[in-house]
Design a protein around this nucleic acid. Structure first.
Length: 592
RNA sequence: GCGCCCGUAGCUCAAUUGGAUAGAGCAUCUGACUACGAAUCAGAAGGCUGGAGGUUCGAGUCCUUCCGGGCGCGCCA
């Protein structure tokens, strides 16, 4: 248990004692009582709002209640000072020893420090990337991939049973379009048509794909099937095999790209497989049986009616019963299922697999789609299921402030591979996690490689590398000392007395609650801020040793103090490393 | 026209989920290197949190409304 949770239970015990003595009413709800580090360090180590949230139900003015609590809190173990401040906050000061014992906890837990049981082992499904198998992955996919992957790792660290999932949209018209484009490249590869012919074909409205990336696919198809698909002009003959071929090829590319990013999914779910298994029909029958679908007409969108609008009866899902703006079509007017119908089936499938807690990571252009899927999930689970959709805003790729639009490799948009080639996997991952995902992000090649405080990746990695460097020196200086985590835990930590040293220990004690908080609200980027701040404190302490040499971590004549400080350095390194692990980033041993 | 997201220092962004005097970096100004790597650090200055109402002990955060920006808006996926 972390220090703040410990203090909270002790505060609750004090309240309980006051209730038992009849000084506070029975049945007092303490669920809103908090024990948090105050923003302002001068306010002490822990602040509680107990007096303020309990004042009304207890029928006492906040200040009076606070005074009562303060008297008792002063006697609580590890509390050295308690005082009332502002409107009724109670500020506690703790003995330095509690922070030192926190450091021992870090060393004992190692890389699992900060792990939480908040998730109670509950199953949660995180679906992310889910890029259509129609072409190479681009920057936008990269952001979704990193955010989803880090969120999944974060939730796992916070005690959830996480499944990482990818939904392959391999059933709709998009993949047919790619098949048509592939056919053009295929005929070209066979020498039957020229590049000009290809461009002519690709310019046709129904063929929206066909970048150069299809050329090797066509070559591979020729290698496998020869000219088997060249003769027939009937799409029905060649679309299915070409579609399957390209989907398989594209998914292989997608998986390679994701592997290069260090992203791995547990499950790949196929839309086509859902359709073929009849799950769409089943899901919609389920809704129909619940009386949640009907055949009706939709109003045209207000203020922006399409020119060719004409009302047509369609099968609609009663999304408005579950908080959506309008009812949503599940069948096209030709009677075939809409994409939404497939998505209903897919989410039903997730529910049937035991997930009531779902997270989807989507691009911001799908924002308009959120409510209807949430409505569908509520309908499918009798309002029990929860779906959180994390929307990722655009990434602007820049180089020294100049927009980069084209890929060097693919010649069209900036691909995920471009990013990795340019700056490396770890930098891509970290930078993608420095902003909350619903805010646009600038990704500047030059800036993210800069070696300065401006660049959070560098700054955090530098702190880690500096710590490792201290240990390299320590091994020479104290060749017989036990510098393992277990050995350092036995160091005389009472030698850590400088306010800035204690300050770093306080920061380490905040790691577990940072993890829990970030996991609960699905915001992995919070860890980036934490790591940056911890790095800043560490660099500050380091530099203090430049002037005050007695504060340097290593003191040649004093192994005892050196080991205490090495324990601190190691604690910082462990926490940074465990934060980077959530981000899927390797901590570096030294900067080069 | 409707819906969703966003609006915080000159710039780029935080802010413990409703907590106290809203914090960092950059830029500006002032300092610290015969170094456990100064690739860093210490300090100064910078704010009516887009505007106006409301909810309460307490609002950047929640509600209403307006202004400004982004995304989306029947049978595309």
């Amino acid at each position: 248990m972390n220090i703040f949770a410990t203090l909270k239970t002790r505060i609750e015990a004090v309240i309980g004692a006051l209730i038992a003595e009849g000084l506070l009413p029975h049945g007092l709800d303490t669920s809103k009582v908090s024990a948090e580090p105050p923003r302002e360090a001068s306010h002490g180590d822990v602040a509680t709002n107990a007096a303020m949230v309990l004042a009304k139900p207890a029928g006492k003015p906040p200040k009076e209640l606070a005074a009562l609590l303060v008297e008792r809190l002063k006697k609580v173990p590890d509390v050295t000072e308690a005082s009332v401040a502002g409107p009724g906050f109670i500020n506690l000061k703790l003995a330095d020893e509690i922070w030192r014992s926190g450091l021992r906890d870090v060393l004992a837990a190692g890389s699992s420090y900060g792990d939480s049981t908040a998730g109670k082992g509950e199953k949660i499904n995180v679906e992310y990337v889910s890029a259509n198998p129609t072409g190479p992955m681009h920057v936008g996919h990269a952001r979704g991939a990193v955010v989803g992957d880090a969120l999944a790792r974060l939730l796992a660290k916070a005690g959830f049973a996480v499944t990482k999932e990818y939904y392959i949209n391999d059933a709709g018209g998009q993949v047919d379009h790619v098949a048509r484009a592939l056919r053009a490249r295929y005929l070209q590869a066979l020498g039957k048509i020229t590049e000009d012919n290809v461009q002519g074909l690709l310019a046709r409205k129904e063929i929206m794909y066909g970048g150069d990336y299809l050329v090797p696919v066509a070559t591979a198809l020729v290698a496998r099937d020869g000219d088997k698909w060249a003769a027939s002009t009937d799409e029905k003959v060649w679309i299915p095999p070409l579609r399957d071929f390209t989907v398989a090829y594209m998914m292989k590319m997608v998986k390679e790209d994701l592997a290069a990013l260090g992203v791995q999914h547990d499950i790949f779910s196929s839309e086509k497989a859902l359709v073929d298994a009849g799950k769409v029909d089943n899901a919609l029958k389920f809704l129909a049986d619940s009386g949640l679908t009907y055949t009706g007409l939709l109003e045209p969108p207000k203020g922006k009616a399409p020119d060719d609008w004409e009302p047509r009866p369609q099968l609609l899902f009663k999304a408005t019963d579950f908080g959506d703006e309008v009812d949503r079509p599940v069948k096209k007017s030709d009677g075939s299922w809409t994409y939404f119908a497939g998505d209903i089936a897919y989410h039903k499938d997730k529910v049937d697999r035991g997930f009531n807690n779902l997270v989807n990571v989507w691009g911001a252009d799908h924002g308009g789609y959120v409510k209807r899927v949430q409505a569908a999930l509520k309908a499918l689970t009798d309002n029990k299921g929860a779906l959180d959709v994390q929307l990722c805003q655009m990434v602007r790729v820049l180089n020294n402030g100049e927009p980069v639009k084209m890929s060097k490799r693919a010649g069209t948009f900036v691909t995920l591979r471009d990013l990795i080639d340019e700056v490396g996997k770890d930098v891509v991952r970290f930078i993608m996690l420095t902003r909350k995902n619903d805010a646009p992000l600038d990704f500047d090649y030059a800036k993210v490689m800069e070696k300065s405080r401006e660049n959070p990746v560098f700054y955090v990695q530098y702190a880690h590398a500096r710590g490792r460097s201290v240990f390299r020196h320590a091994k020479e200086m104290f060749p017989t000392a036990d510098l393992s985590d277990a050995g350092l835990a036995k160091a005389d930590l009472a030698r850590l007395t400088d306010p800035d040293e204690i300050g770093v220990l306080r920061a380490l004690a905040n790691w577990p609650r940072t993890i829990e908080g970030a996991a609960l609200v699905h915001e992995p980027h919070r860890l980036a801020t934490y790591m940056y701040d911890l790095a800043a404190q560490f660099h500050g302490l380091w530099n203090k040793g430049n002037d005050a040499t007695e504060l340097r971590f290593l003191q040649a004549g004093d192994q005892s103090v050196s080991c205490a400080r090495l324990a601190l350095v190691r604690g910082v390194g462990l926490v940074i490393a465990s934060g980077l692990a959530v981000f899927g980033v390797e901590p570096v041993e030294e900067m080069r």
